[in-house]
Design a protein around this nucleic acid. Structure first.
Lengths: 235, 235
DNA sequence: GCCCCAGTTAACTCCCCGGTTAATTAGAGG
DNA sequence: CCTCTAATTAACCGGGGAGTTAACTGGGGC
């Protein structure tokens, strides 16, 4: 009799529920303390599961970390895949994407933490992930289409590389959150107050649309612009 | 006879040299492995100094980390303090600041690492620093002056908050480097190739100047812009 | 030439933590 | 009701790493 399937009160002997509880606890622990400082004992305590279960389901601490990392990225990319802005005016579509990103960062600090952590460790684990190919953000293609629409209607400039543009948009959105603590400490501001977040949102939209709507070549070139200094660069 | 002062071959019994060697090793170790994974034994080995010396000079692993963090920030702020762009045209001055930042990030990955690490740990150590007040970047004032010049000559838009603007400029510059590994893995690009860095430099300058030179109100407002959603925000 | 202490050393302690062993039990299938 | 296995548990192990102890020494001051 498999009367109770799962989803009711998860008591004893429920593989999926146990796995899920561990994963959630890992998400919390890793994003709070970081990979090296996180302890498997604490993760087990957090979710009231025997430590051995971590090794039973995830093999090792690193295996658990990788699973947590993947789950965070999967959810993020899934959201970006859902967005539908094809029916919007190009400028409104760009704005909608910025809103999506900022809202996501506000509501999912776990993602911001994992991204920062993973970059600190040179994306060692991300690169190892078999799901890496799934993490290529679908937004670059959405952006490419929006840009094309905006360009053919004459609203947007012509010389925009979608990936490069995506990085810029992303930078304007995420850095405020990923660096909120140093910025907050140095400028003595509460970066997470509603008013400040809204101000940020407006600035980002303003920046991005200014760039896109700037007529090609209209920008005053700085006089005496020195050529790119390749010599100073590594590799 | 204090014949050899220091700076020649630093052999035995040289407090300053020992302290400096430890600090340098700490810089390397912490930025490579992170605060929790860094080991005092390894730091001692790295610079050929007895582990006890770390405790003699810095009190604890955390004390050493704080000293390293402060030294990294001090050097960064010192550089920003040195820059002189008052003689340049406003647009060229902005460009010079962007160049300064990008060059610095390219040449000082330690700074990028420490900044990311410190933010991951919610700026816990930075906030504890007695030198925190020294880390308020002098660039915001420089920026304020440049903006004023650009505004009175009619080249720049009027409604720009210096701190907000600084954050945006900084975001466009640093995120490319702080997130180089995840971006590189996902987009399969070598973010640190000379050509890609130069492309980045041009894009950032383009973004920032487009924003500043955008005539107030010239930007097409997106139709149907929904009002700011305060409700969705935390606190 | 001697004293004294800042600077240096090796050896040690203790505990935390990742991972393992082996025994135990819930419950599905026959 | 019995069996067999997936799931769960407690107890244990070994290594690494932060921090300490106490002995020692180079060299400046007198």
């Amino acid at each position: 009799m498999k009367r109770r399937k799962r989803a009711t009160a998860p008591q004893k002997r429920n593989a999926d529920a146990t796995r899920a509880k561990i994963l959630q606890a890992a998400l919390d622990e890793f994003s709070e303390r970081g990979l090296p400082a996180a302890s498997t004992d604490d993760i087990a305590d957090r979710c009231g599961v025997n430590k051995r279960m971590i090794y039973y389901y995830f093999g090792s601490k690193e295996g658990l970390y990788l699973a947590a990392l993947e789950s965070v990225f999967e959810r993020f990319v899934a959201l970006e895949r859902e967005i539908d802005v094809e029916h919007l005016e190009p400028a409104a579509a760009i704005e909608a994407m910025i809103d999506l990103k900022i809202d996501y960062y506000v509501e999912n600090p776990h993602f911001v933490s994992f991204l920062a952590m993973e970059n600190f460790y040179k994306a060692r684990h991300l690169r190892k992930s078999k799901k890496l190919h799934m993490f290529k953000t679908p937004l670059t293609e959405v952006i490419a289409r929006i840009l094309k629409r905006g360009q053919s209607s004459g609203q947007f400039r012509q010389d925009v590389d979608p990936v490069d543009f995506y990085v810029s948009m992303c930078a304007l959105c995420i850095m405020y959150f990923s660096n909120q603590h140093s910025l907050g400490a140095i400028f003595q501001r509460d970066m997470m107050s509603g008013a400040n977040i809204e101000r940020r949102r407006r600035t980002v939209v303003d920046f991005v649309l200014s760039y896109l709507q700037m007529t090609d070549g209209a920008r005053t070139p700085a006089p005496g612009r020195k050529p790119a200094r390749q010599a100073a660069l590594v590799s």
